[in-house]
Design a protein around this nucleic acid. Sequence first.
DNA 1: GCCTCCGTTTACGCGAACGTCAAGATGAGT
DNA 2: ACTCATCTTGACGTTCGCGTAAACGGAGGC
Lengths: 145, 145
Amino acid sequence: MAKTYSIRQLTKEMGVTSRTLRHYEDEGLLSPERQGLARIYSQRDRARLQLILRGRRVGFSLAEIREILDLYNAEDHGVAQFQHSRKKFAERIVALEAQRKDIDESIAELKLAVERADNFLAEHHAAQNPPRVKMTGYSVMPAAE
Amino acid sequence: MAKTYSIRQLTKEMGVTSRTLRHYEDEGLLSPERQGLARIYSQRDRARLQLILRGRRVGFSLAEIREILDLYNAEDHGVAQFQHSRKKFAERIVALEAQRKDIDESIAELKLAVERADNFLAEHHAAQNPPRVKMTGYSVMPAAE
DNA sequence: GCCTCCGTTTACGCGAACGTCAAGATGAGT
DNA sequence: ACTCATCTTGACGTTCGCGTAAACGGAGGC
C-alpha cells in the first residue's frame, strides 16, 4: 500500500496549520481522499503541498499556484492547451528571473550595510564608551541609481 | 537647488498610484517636504521609494521595510544599536538567500515543464489533428523531494 | 468668473490568506 | 460507558496593502 499521511503528520512535517491545509482544499489546490470524514493525504498530495508552499515563499498567490498546478496536472490535453501551458510557464520563468535579480540586489545592499556596521564596530572597539556618534560619510541612503 | 519631484512625476516614473505614496507616508516609510499642502519629494525620497518597491517585490511587508529603513536611516547610534542592526541585516540576508534557492528551484521546474511541452509539441507537429492525448510517462507531478 | 487640473484629507471597502471560535463526529484506550 | 485526542464543518474575525469615492483647495488659462 502506498504511504499516506494524516492531516497532523503533514502539518508537523511542513510547518503549517490544519486550517491552512483545509483552506488549500477549499481553494482547489489539494483534494485528499477520505476515510469517512477524515482526510487521507497521499504522496502526491504531499508533493503538491510542497510545491504550493514553495510557490508561496516565492510570492505566488494561491490562484496563481492553482493555475500552475492545473497546467501540470492536466491529464487530457490538446495541442492548443500545451502551447498555452508552455507560454504560461515561460512567463513565470521570466518573472522569477526578474525577482531573483531583485533579491541579489537586496542581498548586495544588505551586505554593504553589514560591512559598514562592522567597520563602525571595529573603529569603536578600542575606544572606551563612545558616547554618541554621527554617521560619517555615507549618508542616510545607499546611492540610488 | 536639488532636484525635486511632484507626486505625479514620481508615480509615473515608478509605476505606482498616488494613493500608494500617501499610504507609504502614513506608514512612516516616506516623509516628503511640503509646500503648503502639496508634497515635494526629494532625491532621497525617490531613493527610499525605490528601495521600498524592491522590498515589496521580494516579499517584505511594509513593516519590515520600515524597520530596515529605520536601521539604515538612523543618524545617531550607539554601539549597541549598530550591533543590533548588523544582526538584523544578517538575518535578512540569510532569509533572502533561502528565497533565492526557492526561486532557482522553481525556475528549474518550470524549465522542465517547458521542455516537456516542447517535446510534446514537436512529436505532434507532423501528425495532423491529434485529437486527444494522454500524458505519457511523467505522472501528474514532478518528482517530489 | 469659471473651468480644468493637480493636489489634498477622511474614511469606508475589498480580496487574499488564513486565525479563531463553536459545536459536533469518530475512534482508541481504560 | 466514559474520557480524551483528533478529526470534522461552518462561519465570523483579522491583517495587509492598497482601491475608491466624497468633498474640498489653490493655480493657471480663456
